[in-house]
Design a protein around this nucleic acid. Sequence first.
DNA 1: CTTCATTTATGACTGTAGTCAGTTTATAGT
DNA 2: ACTATAAACTGACTACAGTCATAAATGAAG
Lengths: 222, 222
Amino acid sequence: MVERRKALSAAAGARTATEQAPPPMGRRERNKQEKLARIVQAARVLFGEKGFAETTTQQIAEAADIGTGTLFLYARSKEDLLVMVFKDEMIETARAAFEQLREGDPLLDQLVQLFSSMMGYHARDPDLARILLKEIMFPAAPDRAADITELLQFIYGELGELVTDAQKSGDFRPGADPILVAENLFANYYMDLMAWLGGGISMQQFPDRLRQHLAITISAGR
Amino acid sequence: MVERRKALSAAAGARTATEQAPPPMGRRERNKQEKLARIVQAARVLFGEKGFAETTTQQIAEAADIGTGTLFLYARSKEDLLVMVFKDEMIETARAAFEQLREGDPLLDQLVQLFSSMMGYHARDPDLARILLKEIMFPAAPDRAADITELLQFIYGELGELVTDAQKSGDFRPGADPILVAENLFANYYMDLMAWLGGGISMQQFPDRLRQHLAITISAGR
DNA sequence: CTTCATTTATGACTGTAGTCAGTTTATAGT
DNA sequence: ACTATAAACTGACTACAGTCATAAATGAAG
């Protein structure tokens, strides 16, 4: 058996905003956190290098230096693991995509740019993205459901602000609930994304179709 | 080995509209058709009785009276098989849902009723529906892609007519392409459906949320 | 009817996701 | 420090989806 690492590497991962419980963290909890990080990292690398289907859970376990069964203490299934891997990156991608927007631009342009950025992320590995999109709406575990909720809440919130701004500047009708509008806009994106990954439309068609769909939703503001 | 049936039972299944090639149909083709029908039927029954995960492909093959390997000559995967089963029923459900609409009613009411009918179908077996919705946007084989396209084209076509009617009666702004609007409306339905099946919202919340989302899209007509 | 080529069928077999009974490790109590 | 309880870990094992080399069935050609 290979010698197990003893938590020497810096474990100071990214901390969430709402957090104030660093003291109650015994060896047990630390080990768990560290192991989880190793697992997710191993999965990220292997999925990226060899693809989802071609990577076995054994290989992931080995790379993370844990037993076969231990893996499933941290992820309900291989697919669940994939969502774990993507989750962090997707939130980061979304954040970057929003930051990159130019405040003065017309709402429609901003939206197309925003969603194109997000789509660009998935374009790096459409095979993984396909499986991810399949799984993401149907969380395999409560933890995962919370992750997805967090991601969607963030996106809806930011999108909602975009809408609110457009409403203030008279670019969009004031009556509509910004969050509901945000959900509709995201629905436009998600369906077109699935259409692309499912083979219904080409990558070239994607921005045009998306723009058309968004325009329909947006034009509610005229 | 069990004696194989010899095509005694009435094989006059439901015929599609566009069909005019009954002569070029040798024993070979007939056998294939019949076998496919047996497989789909067996899968339908077993999935319904025992659930997707609890049904093995062996059992389906046995019930369809074919070899284990033969099954995968007709379906790429177990999931693919599920889509095969649902596909026919979904088109029929959609057709029925559209027919049931009352022509004079406001567009929004018609849409809510329409999608509620469709959702009611999935409510009979949410577990199966969950897997189905996951698979349906990512066809596993060209045949399946064609099936899904057919279903969506039908829905978009009919929805488009509803929109066109609303435009004629001044209930909806004339400028918008009815098909694009139809796609947006369906996107509203699909996302809310996934939210329900994914555990995001309850079955009670579903109609309200759907109506709100549709209202946003519809209000483009004001 | 007899080849022969091609399509379709078959089930023993393989690889792997996920389980579980048994073991180790951490913590709390004394 | 020692012990007891609970949490976390483990890898041999199981069940099953899907493959593939071989065999049967079909139809075409003679």
